[in-house]
Write a protein that binds this DNA or RNA. Structure first.
Lengths: 127, 127
DNA sequence: TGCGCATTTAAGCAAGTGCTAAAATAAGTT
DNA sequence: AACTTATTTTAGCACTTGCTTAAATGCGCA
């Protein structure tokens, strides 16, 4: 009980234990994958800002977001597409303007993260 | 009340409102930045697996993780370094082996995410 | 129908990421 | 000191990311 697939050859390698870990990992794999891609989306400063804004404003159009973030409409649009493709946002068109809003599926994960931002216990500069 | 910095020229541009959004954003900026980098770290499938494993096993050495994930020790080590640099993990050496474990600072954010993985309400294949 | 505004898409590019392979540290054993 | 094991570091490379610029699409209005 000590031989292993990879190149580490320590004596204490507990194959049973390792296989147990692997099984648990396999079990959560699909959930873990989808969580990873959600976090990857939110793990970009610009996109996290967009999510934060939408958590506060219910809905915003590409234009507004570009104004707030002082970024190109094109750049913002490309971020919005990623977020939409990831199921984090949904879009609805009103005339020629497209409004984006947070969509339900991933909200349980995202909400607490975004709430945590406003609940900063220190550093109230405008108080 | 309708002119804007960027290239979108819609009539309804509410400068006051936009500036309000910007102010709120500035206010949370530091917290948002650090959250973004934490999520970027966790938003990688391999690293999220590592975090998941460490949430279950308290501590593991590079070797063990490499075995479980069936990856090169070197590749794992590089991920661990990023996690450590980001303050998500801390390391302590026992002989020549280095044990990694989740570190407190970011736990409040990470724990719920990792817990969510095991609490999958559907798909119990081994039941 | 033709023009204007909101948005998307496409191409290109600089920078970043994640792996491999090989060499460098570091620590225990003999 | 020489040898082994655990880990880190380095360089290199394929691949991805996020922006810019320019062209396309979509839709409303005169």
């Amino acid at each position: 009980m000590s031989k292993k697939a990879t190149d580490c050859i320590r004596v204490y390698a507990d194959t049973t234990h390792i296989e147990q870990c692997q099984r648990r990992l396999v079990q959560v794999e699909p959930a873990l994958q989808s969580l990873a891609s959600l976090l990857a989306l939110a793990g970009n400063e610009v996109r996290l800002k967009i999510l934060f804004l939408l958590a506060q404003e219910q809905q915003l159009c590409v234009c507004d977001i570009a104004d707030v973030l002082q970024m190109t409409v094109s750049a913002v649009s490309q971020h919005l597409r990623k977020l939409k493709d990831g199921g984090v946002l949904h879009a609805h068109k009103v005339g020629q303007t497209v409004f984006y809003a947070l969509s339900q599926p991933h909200l349980p994960v995202l909400q607490p993260l975004l709430m945590g931002l406003t609940a900063t216990p220190s550093l109230q500069s405008t108080l």
